[in-house]
Write a protein that binds this DNA or RNA. Structure first.
Lengths: 280, 280
DNA sequence: GGGCTGTCATAATGGATGCTTATGGCCAAG
DNA sequence: CTTGGCCATAAGCATCCATTATGACAGCCC
């Protein structure tokens, strides 16, 4: 029977990668640097591959480390959710509005888990255009909104920055001039930042396809119509761009969560909010 | 900062539930009974709720234990997958045929993970009717098929039994006479076993709706057209039947995996097969 | 009713595990 | 050339944890 990983080691590893340094991770976790060093080493011997490139200026994940990272983060998230939600039996209702790119990711699975765990509670997830979202928020149908910060219907309680990556369809040359681009057609905030990024890089481009849904964009990229800027979680297997220099650098997106003031203190909304924050 | 669960403790807990006894779980894990007893106790104190009902005839999960169980199993599965797949860089192609009820569950997510982990490999998942599946298997397009044992296109390499549960739409009375039933319309093996179960229970029934896709069945149940027999993973939040005696007992389904002999020894197919086996 | 056999819980011991302190090497910036 | 960041290594010591050795309890069979 295969051995198990240990969650504490995964936490050390993830913290080290996020902190960019074993020492900082150590203080963040309330331990000493040799302890963390030892833990990472143990994890590496369990996995069988080196996970971090050590240098006098800090650490960076190796190839194997980058592969392990998403698994580690999901395990940590599941562990935290199991720990806080088991045996609580929440009831009530919570409406959640999500940016479409987020709804397609593992977030919806986490929310489904939460709903299954609390049979007395109901969750409603919707991802619609920003104006409709604002209305749903104002009327109280949606209690939590996770979206780009400028599009939030209320003040953000917290924010996170996420990178964008290029998705390249099969048969598309990322060096083409002009570059065929697949875009969201609706008022999408990163639509403009993507185009600005290309203008800054003096890169000629043309709109090859527009769609107002993520599945449409994905289908267009898959069909080889052009390249698109997506969140990494929505990349399909063959779409990653392996040549980092062929395409302009993309800006990060800043996501934030707005919570309707009327739900202050509601335990179910609390649980959903912290699940979102953990998973995002 | 919240404490972490420990994977070893989760493994002990899951093994104990599956074995129905702490002692058997201990020998299965190669430890002694007090060690397991101690581990379960530690997990209980970490979660803050008792997880097992102890009795002189064995153990049964408590309510909190049943809630924790799916989390624990997913964490174990993720851990095993991370452990065996990181840094392996598999290449090639693998076609997978899935029973539609399985394709809708977390299986597809696990396969997507696998594909993302090995950018040089391609995976193709299809879930079609049994005859089409057999043809895809015979022509070599599909290398692994996970389906009910009688429908497999080749001899099963391994099998698992899974329970079926009743899904009850909102507004449907599970005690109605005759019982309105939502069915898969195609040659589906458990269609007949479901109807036999009702005949055995002398329960009059009528077909309220037929569909040949899972989403159709789910939509019908959701709309309150009747009850359906599903795998637990496909139950939507509000559909669980809380009155255990109102509906006849459902038989288990026996799932098996067939592997095309030409793929013997192929590492990618090995990896996909073991991922399926772990997750199912 | 009295073994017998299964279950789980508890207590004490000894060894392994893992954190800490203390040190050294390395590189870049001042 | 020194200083201050980083990481690795070594040795001591506390803690943790699995083991052995028990005890309590329930069912089964003679």
């Amino acid at each position: 029977m295969a051995k198990d990983l240990e969650i504490a080691l995964l936490r050390s590893f993830v913290t080290a990668v996020r902190a960019g340094s074993i020492s900082r991770a150590a203080t963040a976790l309330g331990h000493t640097q040799p302890a963390l060093s030892q833990q990472v080493r143990k994890l590496e011997s369990a996995v069988g591959h080196p996970l971090l490139h050590r240098s006098p200026s800090g650490v960076l994940p190796t190839r194997a480390g980058e592969e392990l990272l998403p698994y580690a983060e999901r395990i940590l998230s599941l562990s935290a959710q199991a720990l806080t939600e088991t045996g609580r039996a929440l009831t009530g209702h919570c409406g959640v509005g999500l940016l479409e790119d987020l709804a397609a990711s593992q977030l919806s699975q986490v929310l489904a888990d939460l709903a299954r765990l609390h049979p007395g509670a109901t969750l409603e997830v919707l991802s619609v255009a920003d104006v409709a979202m604002r209305e749903a928020y104002d009327t109280g149908r949606v209690h939590l909104v996770l979206n780009e910060v400028p599009a939030l219907p209320g003040p953000p309680r917290w924010t996170v920055r996420r990178p964008l990556v290029w998705a390249v369809g099969t048969g598309v040359d990322p060096a083409a001039q002009p570059l065929p681009v697949v875009l969201f057609s609706n008022p999408c905030f990163w639509r403009t930042s993507v185009l600005e990024a290309m203008d800054r890089a003096d890169r000629p481009w043309r709109v090859a396809f527009e769609s107002n849904s993520l599945v449409g964009v994905l289908a267009a990229v898959r069909a080889g119509l052009g390249v698109a800027a997506l969140m990494p979680a929505n990349l399909e297997p063959g779409m990653a761009c392996h040549d980092a220099d062929a395409l302009p650098v993309l800006p990060d997106v800043e996501l934030g969560l707005a919570r309707h003031p009327r739900t202050e203190g509601d335990p179910l909304t609390d649980a959903v909010e912290s699940a979102l924050r953990r998973t995002i």
